[in-house]
Computed example of a mutant assay.
Amino acid sequence: MSSFNLADHPHRRYNPLSGEWVLVSPHRAKRPWQGQQEEVPADTRPAYDPTCYLCPTNVRANGERNPDYTATYVFENDFAALQPGTPDGALQNTGLLRAESERGICKVICFSPQHNLTLSDMDVTAIKQVVDVWQREYEELGALDFINHVQIFENKGSVMGSSNPHPHGQIWAQRSVPAGPANETRQQAAYFAEHQRSLLQDYVAQELSEKTRIILENEHFVVLVPFWAVWPFETMIISKRHFQHIGQMGEEEKLAFADAIKRLSAVYDKVFNVSFPYSSGLHQSPTDGQAHPEWHFHMHFYPPLLRSASVKKFMVGYELLGEPQRDITAETSAERLRSLI
């Protein structure tokens, strides 16, 4: 029997941020595809769409009119999943049935007044304005006494559930810390307690020494395919400096962060020569009043496209019942992305 090789043999990889595992089956990438293929709609969006509820001066679904904004624009979501006035309450004395009320605030951020742009089309200065808004909203929402977590994210493309193609993202701020960030808090805290260093700082140092999964870097940030990636072209943007949240970024770091987002999103669009769909989001320390020295700021990108612009990865079967699985190794994805810079 030949010796074990990550590039050829089935294996599991550990995610130290979540404490979970992913099954990697690189030999399956060679099989022919006869599964579902998504339709790829042509992007014929105008710079201004009179029917879009996010374009400047248009009326939204709740009857309010958008201002004639010229840069980023933020408003409270008209169909918010969380509400600030939710009363306290819970199911009590119901055995294994458990529920509790959840308060929160949901906002929409229009990245640009131009309907036909994406982050990959915007220049770094314009993206830096988005980062400025993320910073302000994180600090302002996090300062509220009933907000303990601020989740900033973007769903790009209809295949990722985006109901409007206008360039925009969302913020859901809530009383509880959701499961994903809570897991990352636990894992990072355990590592910091043992080593007195940031888990991601040590991880970035190892990746920079190997270079295998690095896509690009600038003075302040590294863009890489994580060793434990689940999605075909999953990436992370990780700060080189150990800090906890976006509120601690200086002007140079915000500009470098915008540069990393711009360059990564531009590379994504070259993979299959299509405006690349993804869900992305910032992960940073909770806003519960604690210092959280273990936390290290980073951003996740989860794109669904697998083999072409029309083939999407689904979580089915074993992945729903067992654990996540991928065919294309992180090293192969990184090499593909890096070659497109």
Rank of each mutant, 00 (worst) to 15 (best):
L199V: 14
L199F: 12
L200V: 11
L200S: 09
Q201E: 15
Q201N: 10
Q201K: 12
Q201M: 11
Q201C: 11
Q201H: 10
D202G: 12
D202W: 11
D202R: 11
D202H: 12
D202N: 14
V204W: 09
A205W: 03
Q206G: 12
E207V: 14
E210S: 15
K211N: 12
K211E: 14
K211L: 09
K211V: 10
T212F: 03
T212I: 12
T212H: 09
R213Q: 11
I214G: 04
I215W: 02
I215H: 04
I215N: 04
L216F: 03
E217Q: 15
E217W: 02
E217F: 01
N218H: 05
N218F: 05
E219M: 01
F221Q: 08
V222P: 04
V222F: 02
V223Q: 02
V223E: 02
L224Y: 10
L224S: 10
L224C: 13
L224H: 10
V225P: 05
P226A: 08
F227Y: 15
W228P: 02
W228G: 02
W228K: 03
A229L: 02
V230N: 04
V230M: 03
W231D: 00
W231F: 01
P232Y: 00
F233T: 02
F233C: 02
E234M: 01
T235R: 04
T235G: 03
T235N: 09
I237K: 04
I238T: 09
I238C: 06
I238E: 03
I238W: 03
S239D: 04
S239F: 06
K240R: 15
R241I: 04
R241T: 11
H242E: 05
H245F: 06
I246L: 15
I246K: 10
I246V: 15
I246Y: 07
I246F: 08
G247I: 00
M249W: 00
M249G: 00
M249S: 06
M249T: 07
G250Y: 03
G250V: 03
E251S: 14
E252L: 12
E253P: 05
K254N: 06
K254W: 05
K254A: 11
L255W: 11
F257P: 06
A258K: 08
A258F: 09
D259L: 06
D259H: 11
A260S: 15
I261E: 06
I261Y: 09
K262G: 07
K262C: 13
K262M: 05
R263Q: 15
R263L: 13
L264M: 07
L264T: 08
